[in-house]
């Protein structure tokens, strides 16, 4: 099922606010073998991934058909324990190459005051084929 190109420019509803707890940071760090106590720079993927899942559900795409093409973060400030983060995802482009859909997104991650913490851009590949 190809992805609808009219999605470009559409912003999806913000994700539910997610508190950055010490426990969540410790679990994330432990999974990648880090242990300094600092919030890992890729931690905001937790909220951008939630935004991505909402998007995939909205367009009816199965997660197992998705692979990650690229991911970039630009941080306005470091994420801190106690932050309450919300991501709003916008589709910036949809292209179809060789039966795969290449979907580019930009997610703005804000704190409880609405200030931008981080902007995350991602390209995901929807692998077409015999579905």
């Amino acid at each position: 099922m190809p992805i609808d190109a009219t999605l470009v420019g559409r912003a999806f509803p913000p994700t539910a606010p997610r508190e950055v707890t010490a426990e969540a940071v410790a679990a994330f760090s432990a999974a990648v073998g880090g242990g300094s106590g600092a919030v890992p720079p890729t931690f905001p993927i937790v909220v951008t991934f939630a935004a991505l899942q909402d998007f995939l559900a909205a367009v009816g795409v199965e997660l197992s058909r998705i692979v990650h093409g690229d991911q970039r973060f630009r941080y306005a400030r470091p994420v801190e324990i106690g932050d309450e983060l919300t991501a709003t995802l916008t589709v910036t482009s949809v292209r179809s190459i060789g039966g795969n859909d290449i979907i580019s997104t930009s997610s703005e991650i804000v704190d409880a005051s609405g200030a931008v913490v981080c902007t995350a851009t991602a390209t995901i590949v929807h692998r077409g084929g015999a579905s």
Partner: peptide, 26 residues
């Protein structure tokens, strides 16, 4: 996961310097 390991390496090398940009293509 791989990108998180890059973040881990940077933290280990720099004593957890503030990262202002991080990204890559897979």
């Amino acid at each position: 996961y791989t990108l998180a390991l890059v973040g881990r390496a940077i933290g280990e090398w720099t004593g957890d310097a503030e990262v202002v940009e991080l990204g890559a293509k897979f």
